[in-house]
Structure formats: structure tokens, C-alpha cells
Amino acid sequence: MSSLSTKHLLGIKDLSAEDIQLIFSTADNFKEVLNRQIKKVPSLRDITIANLFFENSTRTRLSFELAEKRLSADIVNFSASSSSVSKGETLIDTVNNILAMKVDIVVMRHPHAGAANFLARHVNARIVNAGDGAHEHPTQALLDAYSIREKEGSLKGKKVVIVGDILHSRVALSNIFCLQKMGAEVMVCGPTTLMPKYISSLGVKVSHNLREALNWCDVANMLRIQMERQDIRYFPSLREYIQLFGLNMDMLNSLKKPVTIMHPGPINRGVEITSEVADSVQSIILNQVENGVAIRMAVLYLLASRVD
């Protein structure tokens, strides 16, 4: 099989294990390209991509932009703060106006869950979801799983714990889908207030004790506490959160076996993990960022092959 079963990348939920495998093997090829002196291939020469960011982002946006440029696509950038959205234009109007300028693929981040799905139903372009509200962030999950595969050799049977604010995290949801599809076991760990009510219905283990969770797992993905989404107080104080769910070097060294540490960024150093942990040899945080470009190149390449 050499093409994806879907026309868009809206979420991991729509992908099959074969699709994910195909994205990984294509990313392997792009990783080799990225290590060349000339880190660029001409595949998407005649494709135009619009990056629509209705919510702030540094890493994802840069990573997508680099991936697009390394595939030789033409790109246009758009951020909500400097656009007509602030003048009251609807999402469909905004996007259709952009598509009228002959754009083939739209990469979109949006604060509302389902925005990418909505767009895919109403406009004639390939849509890549770069994060929609607290719903999904598929490329992040793909690069996380890809980085685990690279470090551990395979995902099958691996135990991964996702720690932190599961309630507001699209990274957590996409990661759960992706890891399960690839045969890994997933546990979520965090304060009860930051745990969605029916999370165990997704087939994940739930823990409220960080040490117990870390002793169970091979890989720990430490999520960021999303200060901007703490509209009500989910935990009494940041200090208490750090004491209960913050990972420091003492705890990491006292575990039964070495655990690989991941973080989707941006890190609140000293909150979910200390600086020493983030910069330790067990951390693959920067590998995640590096792999992000290769994974996004693979996704765009495979979707572009389906542009009519």
C-alpha cells in the first residue's frame, strides 16, 4: 500500500494502523533527506499550502512551515490576530477566499474542537488538523509515537504513561488513539480534577500517583500545565501540583528501571518537569522536535499525492 485511506488528516481516530505505518516509513525516508547537505526535495513543486493559525503556536507552525519548504511547496501564512477574522468574517468565508487563490492544502489550528472536521465537509481542499481545541492534534501524536518507535525499536507492547492535564489536552487524546492503534499500552496520570470523567472507556489505565505510574511504564509523556485554560481552579496551588505530579531527578533516579522522558512543549521548567530532567540523557524532547519535521513532510507528501 502506498497511499493513505483518508483524504484529510483530521484526527488519529480516522487513521488505520496501516496508514500510521505508511506515514512512519515515509518519514524514515524524509529523515534521511533532512540529514543531507541539501535538505530539500522537489516533490510538492506545484502545490500551494495555506497555514491558518487561529490560535498561537510556535513549534507546530515552524515545523509545518519547514516541512512545506523542504518539500518545495508554495506557502501562505495567516494568523487570526492580524486578519479579517477580527472584523467578523466567518470561518468558511475566510477559507473560501483563500482557496479562491488556488490553494490545495490547508493546515489549520483552531481553538474550537471539530473546526477541521467542519472545514473538510464544506471546502474543496485537503485539510490537515494542526490542533482543534481540546479534541485532536494528530501530527503531534504521530511524531510522539514515531520518536518512541525510534528510541525503543517498536511500539508493540510498550507501556506509555501520559502525565498532567488530560482534561484540556488534545495531545493526550491523539496520543491515546495512536499508541493503542500501534499496540502500545497507555496509562493516564494526573489530579482527579484534570481527568475527563469517562477516560477509562477509551481502554486506558488511570492513576493518580506519579511514582506508581512511572514504575509501571517504559515511556513517560509529561504534558504541560495549560495555564491559559485554568478557567476555574483545578488544583489548589501550583506548588501542590509540583509536589504531587512534578518530575524531578530524585524521583527519576529512584525508579526500578530507566524511563524515557517526553514532552510536547512548550516546557514550564520546574513545573511538570525540572530542568535537570528535561536535559537528562533519558529525555528525547529534542528528538521529538526533529522528528516533527519528517513526520509532517510525510503527511503532506502522502495527502498531496491525492490532490486532484
Binding site: S3, E32, P42
Partner: peptide, 21 residues
């Protein structure tokens, strides 16, 4: 050497899975 990413028939027919360079 794999040439998949340099082909001129991308999108004109079913793409081949790239091989290793």
C-alpha cells in the same frame, strides 16, 4: 539512490512507496 521524491509523475498516477537512499 531512491528517486521517488524527484519523479515528474507525482499525482499523475499511483505513487510508489519510496525506498531507502
Amino acid at each position: 539512490l531512491d528517486v521517488t521524491f524527484y519523479r515528474d509523475d507525482f499525482r499523475r498516477r499511483e505513487i510508489n512507496a519510496p525506498s531507502e537512499t
